[in-house]
Design a protein around this nucleic acid. Structure first.
Ligand SMILES: [Mn+2]
Ligand SMILES: [Mn+2]
Ligand SMILES: [Zn+2]
Ligand SMILES: [Zn+2]
Lengths: 136, 136
DNA sequence: AATCTTCTTTAGAATAATTATAAACAAGTA
DNA sequence: TACTTGTTTATAATTATTCTAAAGAAGATT
């Protein structure tokens, strides 16, 4: 449980002004026990439901991008009509339930270490992510 | 090197009528030594360049989807504004050069076996794919 | 070959996620 | 307070993809 004051400080420390909208988004996104996987439209609807306050869709996009840029959100690579984000910004992997369109975290120990044996001259590895698609 | 006749037979065997457009797409996609990674717009432009014949964009979409459904193309999960496809339909992994927006095949032996230790009741694994993002 | 049926192509419209614009507004600062 | 800068917002623009429906081509039937 993070207090509103703490979010305000965290925003300030990231040189993001603590607006009402950003604080609401923080509470929806980060006041939870478990990792949260979401699309912009998921988040947009949750804000309406949980805070009762109206927010512009553009602000949701702006804020998610700002948080992503600051490293507070991770973008999950899947082919979907919508982009998925993740509040768990550590290196980790995913199940994707194709039918439910839901992401589920996989801990690194559930996958084991992955050693990439090939290298490309002039390039270095930025991330290694496993996506496990699930069907019924 | 596959002949036009062979493509015609393969299309017929897949209950796809061998139209001029589909044969052209086959030649652009499958007459190559190496795996080909592409977007719809890549393919659309290549068809114009390589065959000199005009084709409708909708037909490129239709055909790629038909080939994908038949299992002749694979869709690669990355977050991009465009969907990537792959002529290598075997199980394999990828580098994604973020700057160049290019995919590079990773052989299974370059990654090693991946054992998923977690399971979700009622669901089975459909695919396991590793995406390695590259930066400079 | 002529006819008939079914599938395919096509241009263009529709859809939907995302991004851009620019004016109103709020936060920080002096 | 006045001033500056960052943010929100409604709305328009953009863009990849899908849909539509009419025209055309392929395959089957006579
Ligand atoms: Mn982003
Ligand atoms: Mn497809
Ligand atoms: Zn996650
Ligand atoms: Zn590939």
């Amino acid at each position: 449980m993070t207090s509103k004051q703490e979010f305000i400080e965290k925003l300030r420390n990231s040189s993001l002004r603590p607006t009402k909208q950003r604080i609401n988004i923080c509470e929806v996104l980060f006041n939870r026990d478990k990792t949260f996987h979401f699309t912009i439209s998921d988040l947009f609807n949750l804000i309406k439901d949980k805070t009762g306050e109206k927010i512009s869709l553009a602000t949701v996009y702006n804020t998610v991008h700002a948080f992503h840029k600051k490293g507070y959100l991770k973008e999950i690579p899947i082919n979907s009509n919508q982009t998925y984000f993740d509040t768990n910004v550590t290196d980790h992997h995913h199940f994707f339930d194709v039918k439910e369109e839901k992401l589920i975290d996989l801990k690194n120990e559930d996958v084991g270490p992955i050693e990439i044996q090939k290298s490309i001259p002039g390039k270095k590895i930025k991330s290694v992510e496993v996506l496990v698609k699930l069907e019924d």
